[in-house]
Computed example of a mutant assay.
Amino acid sequence: MHVPERTGTTAIAAQHVRKRFGHVEALRDASVSVRGGEVVALFGDNGAGKSTLLRTLQGVHVPDEGQIVIGDRPVVLGSVRDAQRRGVDTVYQDLALAPDLSVVDNMFLGHEVIRSGPCAAFGVLSRMGMVERADAALRELSIVLPSLTVPVRDLSGGQRQAVAVARAVMWSRTAVLMDEPTAALGARQSEVVCELMRTVAARGLGVLVVSHDLPRVLAVADRVSILWRGETALEADASDLTVPDVVATMVGYRAEAS
């Protein structure tokens, strides 16, 4: 396995992770590392273990062996909240947005800001402050929306994806995990989301992207990690790989030959 030279702070990593579910060994030796300020693509065929590894990094699963590292320190994650407290947030494939709530309400879902003073006892929201902060977060990522008060259901698919990315970035301090962020999007919308990946990384966050969109994500990634049957078959600089190289490793040609 070729591993490129790594420098800088590790935003998030999984090291030699094993995970079983009964008699099924979903991960047997899976590793991935993301430095702050870079985009790492996690590729693999169906059943390779991508979702299990991502959920382990999210705190959904506890590894049977191996360790998770956040900010250069080994950690034990018992829940998604544990990961969030350490500055790691996720853009889910289904976006996890509430369609009937506004853009602002979605961005602050679970993080609502209560007004100070006498109103605090009644749980009155600081609407103006939330709008201003949401607007600033979107502007920092160069995201333009028709309004922050419209229900999310009224936005296009690409706009909803952008809101989900902005929400994750707003609450992240270390890394953002993205699960199939271009799925079901058109070509232009997918390009916008990929541009967002670079913008997020430029803020110093580590970005890990799980995707089947090989050409587009390979073009935007700094490095690539490929899973094959639950183990890391290849880690390499994205610039050293072509789509046929990735596909060959995903289906096992290189892994079987090595």
Rank of each mutant, 00 (worst) to 15 (best):
T149Q: 15
D105V: 07
V144A: 13
L125M: 15
A202Y: 04
L205S: 00
M170Y: 01
A248K: 06
R229T: 10
V88D: 05
R20P: 00
V3W: 03
L101R: 14
L155W: 01
L101I: 09
L42G: 03
D213Y: 00
Q84I: 12
D237L: 11
L53H: 05
D94G: 06
D94N: 15
A184V: 13
R133Q: 15
R73G: 09
I70A: 05
S116R: 12
V32M: 00
L141N: 08
V169W: 04
L227E: 10
L155D: 07
V217C: 02
A219G: 12
S102Y: 10
A11N: 08
T249C: 09
M178Q: 01
E256A: 15
N46C: 05
M1T: 12
S116K: 09
P4Q: 08
V220Q: 03
A14C: 07
R115V: 08
M128C: 09
E25D: 12
A219D: 12
L148M: 06
R223D: 02
G117M: 09
S79K: 09
G47T: 11
E180T: 13
Q161S: 02
I226A: 03
H212V: 08
R188T: 15
P4T: 12
N106G: 13
L155S: 08
A48F: 04
R198A: 15
R198N: 11
L54M: 15
R133V: 11
A202G: 10
L57W: 06
D213Q: 09
S33R: 11
V76C: 11
S156R: 04
A14Q: 04
R198M: 06
W171C: 02
D245I: 04
P99K: 14
T249F: 03
M250F: 06
G186R: 13
I143K: 03
G44Y: 08
G87R: 13
R55K: 15
S126R: 15
E191L: 06
V32Y: 00
R6A: 09
S156Y: 04
V39L: 05
T56L: 02
T90F: 00
S116F: 05
V131D: 01
L95I: 11
A184S: 14
A166D: 10
A187S: 13
A120I: 06
S33P: 02
S172W: 09
V91C: 03
S190K: 07
A255N: 08
G8H: 05
M1S: 11
V144Q: 11
A137L: 11
D89I: 03
G117F: 06
P181H: 05
L109D: 12
R127M: 10
R20Q: 08
Q161G: 01
A98V: 14
